[in-house]
Amino acid sequence: MQILYFGWVRSRIGHGKEELKLPAGIDTVAGLIHWLKSRGDGYAHAFVDSDVIRAAVNQEIAPHNTAIAEGDEVALFPPMTGG
């Protein structure tokens, strides 16, 4: 699965993109965030307040209960600040 990070999520984790194999049982955005938290200090810092994290699945805004599967492109980021 391709995972993308933007904004301070990216700067806290230290990179903007990675290819990960989903562990069994991880099948939602919320599950993915929870699992990523355990991958190191940068991840723990990025997702310390997971409620503020926004997500997109295959480039569509997606709430945390959205189902994800191998082959999806998932992006995790802070609230957008366009304009």
Partner: peptide, 18 residues
């Protein structure tokens, strides 16, 4: 403002801030 996927990083003398 709230729906376009942009993030702004401001550079200041005290450092960069999202």
């Amino acid at each position: 403002k709230t729906n376009a996927p942009f993030w702004k990083l401001e550079d200041m003398d005290s450092g960069a801030k999202w």
